[in-house]
């Protein structure tokens, strides 16, 4: 059994794609607590997206179980309660946007959950406003820019008022401005967040804990290491600061001084 009181938990999960010798996830235990913010890193093809799909019930593991608020989810039906409370942001925003207009797409979820059209419209408008996307309401979804698509698909998930958000490489192909806006929004959200990303600094800016997946195992990399950092970018000669949200232990702070 996973620890009690968790929001989402995987227990002893093994998953192997058909025709592959080694399981992509090997007896994995993983817990996400309420309001916990976790980053997941790992090489391409190491099973990060599969882990998300297992949590959401899109893939069924060969062994092991998925728990949502201490309830074991066994059948497809059981996952419906999880779908209402856990939102998944797909890697490719195009997969998520299929309604003709932005407003209709954002209202799709609430309508499915039984909201009346007026109520769904109001919730959709409010979510778009909160994300600063009100201007896009009547735009045709497939004509949006990449960044706009990403933000709108975040809105389609946020409108369901989830307890947890799973984000699959959210900062891929985003320009600096949109990326900064995304980080700002994520930091304002008061819910559990699980982010897959290769973008180290995004994870450092948004997450408390960072886990690594490699060779079928999930391990926590909980310690922050001080290291020299050299980088270059345009306007680098201007005095500026880079955000650093990783908490250092008192020893490390002393060391820094």
């Amino acid at each position: 059994m996973p620890p009690l009181g968790s929001l989402v938990a995987l227990h002893n999960v093994t998953f192997c794609y058909p025709g592959r010798k080694h399981p992509i996830l090997d007896k994995v235990d993983f817990t996400l607590h309420e309001k916990q913010r976790v980053g997941l890193i790992g090489p391409n093809g190491c099973g990060k997206t599969s882990l998300f799909h297992i949590i959401m019930g899109l893939l069924r593991p060969q062994t092991g179980t998925v728990f949502f608020k201490d309830t074991q989810l066994n059948r497809k039906k059981d996952f419906k309660i999880l779908h209402e409370k856990v939102g998944l942001l797909f890697q490719d925003a195009d997969d998520q946007l299929f309604s003709p207009t932005v407003l209709e797409d954002v209202a799709f979820g609430p309508l499915n959950l039984g909201a009346s059209p007026a109520e769904a419209r109001e919730r959709a408008c409010q979510t778009l406003q909160e994300l600063g996307l009100s201007k896009l309401e009547q735009r045709i979804t497939h004509q949006l820019s990449g960044g706009e698509k990403k933000m709108v698909s975040l809105a389609t998930v946020m409108v369901m008022q989830p307890d947890a958000l799973l984000l699959d490489e959210p900062s891929n192909n985003l320009d600096m401005g949109t990326r900064a806006r995304l980080i700002e929004i994520l930091n304002e959200l008061d819910l559990a967040i699980l982010i897959i990303s290769h973008d180290w600094s995004l994870l450092a800016d948004t997450c408390e804990d960072i886990y690594a997946i490699d060779k079928g195992k999930v391990t926590q990399s909980d310690k922050a290491y001080l290291h020299d950092h050299r980088h270059a970018h345009p306007y680098g000669e201007q005095p500026h600061r880079h955000r650093n949200r990783i908490k250092l232990t008192s020893d490390q702070k002393k060391e820094e001084r």
């Binding site: 899109l58 059209p117 998930v157 369901m160």
Partner: peptide
């Protein structure tokens, strides 16, 4: 999959009444 995760169960609802 994305539709299912957002609660789609075989019926489209229209926003326009």
């Amino acid at each position: 999959q994305a539709m299912m995760l957002r609660g789609f169960h075989g019926r489209f609802y229209s926003l326009e009444e």
